[in-house]
Design a protein around this nucleic acid. Structure first.
Lengths: 268, 268
DNA sequence: CGATCGTTTGATAGCGCTCAACCGTCGTGG
DNA sequence: CCACGACGGTTGAGCGCTATCAAACGATCG
């Protein structure tokens, strides 16, 4: 993409970095946020919708469940988890978000956030005003089109996850989870076989519907079987094929399921 | 509902009916398909997108997994199930669809249907050309807006279902499922406490991640506990409050979670 | 250096699956 | 009209997977 980052101005007061804006074209992750089907000029327009850029430190909240919904967020760097608090007080992790993925899509219909979002590590986030976004959608057909696609993709992922939780064993779940991360990392240009988990065992277990102890045991078992090497939160996958096999076939979760093969994109 | 249903055509019966079109305004369920925010004139426009009306008999397919995606479907009467075939041959039920609910939203991103859809009983279906729909979306902002909301809602439901499958016991799952049906039926003007299941025990178990036997046992237990009466596929709920309690709190699934209380709808 | 949190490992028990048999209902054909 | 078979549903017995309880360990941080 373009060479230099064109910073345009400061917004409302806040921490120094937080309110800097950068042009969308310069966002290397942009193609992942709302890929394809948007022309040069439309891209420039999209810039207008970016309300703010926020920096979060590990453990900081992006938004809280129940809060009114105004914006959609795109992860630029770092990672988030979303979760809800059940009425019995327990926490239920509903998703993990990597760079290039959109957060808060599930808040549109109710007009408030059904879940909370918290940074798993230092992260940088783009904030889109949804109102502006919709207004612009009227002028730029490609934008809303793309949005529908992104949401549909999300739906698809949820379905896969549903299948995972409904039908798969603990082993299959964890394998599918690790595989999902691998695929998502690869799509972002990172290594698919060597990455760091930004979430705790507890988060993983919670997300996959497993006890922490089970997750831990599975990690050691996978390691004993020579599938991978795990050291603290560092994952080194040795035999990704066997891992895929273990996962059943479901790539699962997050935000994409498609590998290199072909770019989705309906008929056009 | 409205006084007379202006039948533009013959009843069930044969193939004859399949390609007849009726005006959208006459669809009592229309408000449920794409509720709110659409004016009179826009409504008329929407009529154009309705490609066809199809009648399915029990067991007939609406579309098959893998087939290219061209249309979105709205259930007018009857009910459907969607499911995928896992590579080991087993079937995984991914959803049940009642009148007023939209099917195939998950196909948009890939351009082909990730799952198959089959009629659980005699059903009548509206078919929207997605291509036309998108074209029209450019002219009618409210349309795409509404579509985003519907999809967001769907996302929300999937999240609830995830929570269900990840964290809830068999008992809670079935309770939540029955409750979900109750709520959805009520929204459609049917009785919430007295309805027929159009799906088999096997479908229910498959959907909820439970063995058929477990579902069966739970039904009899619920009945012994005075929660409800079940006779074949007829469900009579006696103590819906206790059922809610059992369900944990999750209304779950299908297509709506909101009860009478208030109509969702973002800020506006 | 002690406290706390995240992780691992072990022992035990229970929920829900599996296997198996039986029953009721329905559709079909003699 | 009844026999039959098929299918869906119910019920029972046993076991395996995974949660739970318990404890110790390692890392991080004040």
């Amino acid at each position: 993409m373009a060479g230099n980052v064109k910073l345009s101005v400061a917004g409302p007061g806040g921490a120094a970095v937080a309110d800097k804006r950068i042009a969308c074209q310069d966002c290397t992750l942009f193609q992942l946020c709302l890929p394809l089907g948007i022309g040069e000029d439309e891209l420039a327009l999209l810039d207008e919708v970016i309300t703010a850029r926020r920096s979060l430190k590990r453990g900081e909240m992006l938004f809280r469940g129940g809060a009114p919904f105004h914006a959609i967020y795109a992860v630029r760097s770092g990672s988030l988890k979303t979760y809800t608090i059940m009425q019995d007080g327990r926490e239920q992790v509903t998703g993990f978000y990597l760079p290039g993925e959109l957060v808060a899509l599930d808040a549109i219909s109710l007009g408030r956030h059904p879940s909370s979002a918290k940074a798993l590590e230092s992260s940088s986030i783009c904030e889109f005003s949804f109102q502006d976004f919709e207004r612009m959608g009227a002028r730029v057909p490609g934008l809303q089109r793309q949005m529908l696609r992104v949401m549909s993709r999300e739906l698809l992922n949820d379905e896969l996850l549903l299948l995972l939780l409904g039908k798969k064993s603990a082993e299959e779940r964890l394998a599918a989870f690790l595989l999902s991360l691998a695929i998502r990392f690869r799509q972002r240009g990172f290594s698919a076989t060597d990455y760091n988990l930004s979430m705790s065992r507890s988060d993983i277990g919670n997300y996959l519907g497993l006890a922490v102890e089970t997750v831990s045991r599975l990690f050691t078992r996978f390691q004993q079987d020579g599938l991978l090497r795990v050291e603290r939160r560092r994952i080194r996958i040795h035999d990704i094929d066997r891992l895929s096999l273990l996962a059943g076939d479901t790539a699962l979760s997050g935000s994409q399921r498609i590998d290199s093969a072909e770019v989705p994109q309906s008929e056009r």
